[in-house]
């Protein structure tokens, strides 16, 4: 479960914001929250990220960990659908999954990635693909969970810098303050993923009502900077 020195660099490659999997085009709901006046400074950005981490982030981390641990990716994909009532967010997750799939197959070719790509040509939920990519890169479930949890907060923080002209030092300090909670969420996710190998209902289903509601409104905006 732990990262060995032989694979630690692979985690850096996978979790790098510059990994070409399309994440930079998405704000994780931050654009809608900023437009609504709910996120306006580092403190409100931190509250937003904390809420997203404990809900969508925890679910994504558990899906990724379960996929990396060998759970059936198609059942995980179905579980992800059931945990995503917003069609806009389901579409975003599949679009990001398709892009992650292309990048992952180029970096770490694997039969598991090929099989999922063939079964879900329009894209599987991104955390499921991320988990298989982690396994293909020689990483474990805890690594996959960390990558997914980090992505749940790094996207909004980066977007807030652009949308609010927030000081990048302040935005990054938010991420640094959240680091202990990221570790805790990743550990919770792995524990849930282990139980999910026997019973998929053990996967967390934490939801954030405002993220779901705002995602639909945001998807209908005629002009927006971020795709979600």
């Amino acid at each position: 479960m732990t990262t060995t020195t032989a694979t630690r660099a692979a985690l850096l490659v996978l979790a790098d914001g510059r990994f070409p999997a399309g994440g930079h085009a998405h704000s994780g709901g931050a654009e809608a929250a900023i437009a609504a006046g709910r996120v306006s400074d580092p403190a409100s950005l931190e509250a937003f990220c904390r809420g997203r981490l404990g809900t969508a982030g925890l679910v994504a981390a558990a899906l990724a960990a379960a996929a990396a641990a060998g759970a059936n990716p198609l059942l995980l994909d179905e579980a992800a659908d059931a945990r995503t009532p917003s069609p806009a967010l389901r579409m975003t997750a599949r679009k990001l999954g398709r892009q992650m799939m292309r990048a992952a197959r180029a970096c770490w070719p694997s039969p598991a990635l090929d099989a999922l790509a063939a079964a879900r040509p329009r894209g599987a939920h991104q955390p499921v693909v991320l988990g298989l990519a982690a396994a293909a890169a020689g990483l474990g479930p805890l690594d996959a969970a960390h990558a997914a949890a980090y992505e749940a907060v790094s996207g909004p923080a980066t977007a807030a810098v652009r949308l609010l002209s927030l000081d990048p030092f302040d935005a990054t300090a938010v991420l640094a303050r959240l680091a202990p909670e990221l570790d805790r969420v990743a550990e919770l996710a792995v524990a849930a993923a282990e139980s999910a190998l026997d019973d998929l209902d053990a996967l967390p289903a934490a939801s954030a009502p405002l993220l779901e509601i705002a995602a639909e409104a945001h998807a209908a905006w005629p002009v927006r900077l971020f795709a979600s």
Binding site: R38, A47, R50, G51, L210
Partner: peptide
């Protein structure tokens, strides 16, 4: 964590 924040 975050329940009364802008995401939840």
């Amino acid at each position: 964590p975050g329940w009364s924040g802008p995401a939840v």
